[in-house]
């Protein structure tokens, strides 16, 4: 038993010393120094840069979240056919207004944000009493513990469905996307 252990130790030692005999120590040292140089030049700076960048990104997210929470959002959307729409969000009221610019079509969207439920609704953009486009409003999230704190995150997606122009021709309404 002990003899086998000694033989095993000798075998491992023999292999280790044979392998180490072949090592060029100066070259190994030079390679390690080179890697440390690159690490010191790039690695540490990169780490610092990443730390600063992630800090700035986190700060930007916080500022954005505060702005979205306390202010009404507004955005101009350009459709593929060149028409534009204005979307006005009132996150704390749970309301959004989608308004086409060139014509007078518009849709008022209201959601019950107190329910805390996600979901989507299809609404018409109307001109007078006539629907000219369909618009899907999806509630991505509703946050806030108290009812008074509730607010919704919105995404508005136009439907690739026929749009009925005033003259009766059928056109396609393409991607209209916005996220709040």
């Amino acid at each position: 038993m002990e003899d086998a252990e000694n033989k095993l130790d000798m075998l491992l030692n023999r292999n280790a010393s044979e392998q180490l005999d072949a090592v060029d120590w100066d070259e190994l040292n030079a390679v390690i120094s080179d890697r440390l140089d690159r690490t010191a030049g790039g690695g540490l700076n990169k780490r610092r840069f990443l730390k600063v960048a992630s800090g700035l990104a986190a700060a930007a997210v916080i500022v954005f979240a505060v702005l979205v929470f306390f202010t009404d959002g507004q955005s101009d959307l350009v459709l593929e056919d060149g028409r534009t729409a204005k979307v006005v969000f009132s996150p704390r009221k749970g309301k959004a207004l989608v308004e086409m610019q060139q014509d007078v079509s518009r849709a008022n969207v209201a959601v019950v944000i107190g329910s805390g439920r996600r979901g989507s609704a299809l609404v018409d953009l109307v001109t007078g009493s006539k629907a000219v486009a369909k618009c899907e409003v999806e509630i991505k999230d509703v946050k806030g513990r108290k009812r008074s704190e509730k607010r919704a995150s919105w995404i508005i997606i136009s439907r690739p469905e026929p749009v009925y122009a005033d003259n009766g021709d059928v056109t396609n309404e393409m991607s209209m996307l916005h996220l709040f």
């Binding site: 491992l12 392998q19 180490l20 090592v23 390679v31 390690i32 890697r35």
Partner: peptide, 28 residues
């Protein structure tokens, strides 16, 4: 460090890579 790595890996080629990596980690 090389001896420890050779004893684990069995050969000097891989041990050299490991030792380089080990020193970089230690430095950082």
């Amino acid at each position: 460090a090389m001896e420890a790595a050779v004893r684990i890996l069995g050969n000097a080629g891989e041990a050299e890579d490991t030792v380089q990596e080990g020193f970089v980690k230690a430095y950082l």
